[in-house]
Design a protein around this nucleic acid. Structure first.
Lengths: 201, 201
DNA sequence: TCCATAACGGAACTCCGGTTTCGTTAGTGG
DNA sequence: CCACTAACGAAACCGGAGTTCCGTTATGGA
């Protein structure tokens, strides 16, 4: 007789309220202090729940981060459409830039990336989160192919990744500003490379 | 009377031997288990030194990682020259790819990036490490400008960063393979974007 | 070579994050 | 509405990472 994980038999009601409060508290704490010294008892206090509950339901910091990533993936924004590849990729770059440059969101993303380096389950959740984001924006590259703005055989996922990569690299490896010019440059570079066939497979 | 930090009055002899052993042990442990649960007493055991010494000299895990980054920056490889921008950027991309795809080095880089998200001193050391690497390879873009392969006003640092960024993005946000084709594509995309003037300032 | 002391390490100690226990509260289905 | 139990939380407990103490070893300059 396999025992169900806590919170899975009755996922609604109080259980859902506790999850929401704990995930909100976790996001706040991650943004404030990063991943390293995250303390589940502190999360419990912030969420106004018992620390036993947090240990029972999530067990470890990285499991809590993985659950937060699942929640973030469910909440993420749909893409916009501008009618041109450059316009779409600039919109995407600006969205990523605004997120990473936001004091709370930028730190939160750093923290979840750090957590994912330390735990396979969290890494899976992070990979899924980004796969969902990339899949959300990939159609704009397909549309560009249809409009003749990108060569046949261009991999849409590669193009979308090429827009985000310089912004994340900047966030994680330097203290350089993450401004709109940087975002626009990332989009322009991705468009130029796309047109030149660099992402053809 | 300001007290000197341990190891700074007599930095040679036994002090240097202890540092070398501790940094080697730290690199191994970071590669094996990531950053989160790094235990200074374990590092001391691996290095065959007293744990008091590790706490006295480095104090925290992140300070030890920062010192490891200083050491890594001192050890890094000089750039190669191929005579063409594409050749040079491919060489750079391949070097980064080989490093990140290496089982030990890839994990080590993930771990130091994670550590840098958690501590300002470690972040500074990481930023310096990458600034040194980028400065090492920037001359190849300057040479390309001189040869007419890149437009005047191209920012060499932007170009070198554009080569690395997709590889780090792949390492940190997905489980996708980091192969030579990916490295070559990063170089080709950077060259195409450079030629199109995307990195002109 | 000698000496002052920087740097060292073993052992004892502390404290806080993680674990266990068990009575209480909320949810669900008959 | 009621009975069963999933989920909850307070309190007590535990152990290992971090800290302190003090005798030992190695270094560098006179």
């Amino acid at each position: 007789m396999e025992e169900a994980n806590p919170g899975t038999v009755r996922p609604g009601g109080r259980t859902a309220r506790v999850r929401a409060a704990v995930l909100r508290a976790a996001g706040d704490a991650l943004a404030e202090q990063g991943f390293a010294h995250l303390d589940l008892a502190d999360i419990a206090r912030r969420a106004d729940v018992g620390k036993t509950t947090v240990y029972r339901r999530w067990g470890t910091v990285t499991s809590l981060v993985a659950d937060l990533l699942v929640d973030m993936a469910e909440q993420s924004l749909p893409r916009t459409e501008t009618g041109s590849l450059l316009g779409d990729l600039k919109a995407n770059a600006r969205l990523v830039q605004r997120t990473l440059a936001d004091p709370r969101q930028g730190k939160l993303f750093k923290a979840v990336i750090a957590a994912a380096t330390c735990d396979a389950g969290t890494a899976d959740a992070l990979h899924r989160f980004y796969a969902i984001r990339i899949a959300e924006w990939a159609p704009c590259v397909r549309q560009a192919i249809d409009r003749g703005e990108a060569p046949e055989g261009t991999d849409p996922h590669d193009v979308i990744r090429a827009v985000s990569a310089p912004l994340y690299y900047r966030l994680l490896t330097s203290a350089d500003p993450l401004d709109e010019a940087t975002a626009d440059r990332a989009a322009e570079a991705a468009v130029a490379a796309t047109r030149a066939g660099a992402y053809r497979r």
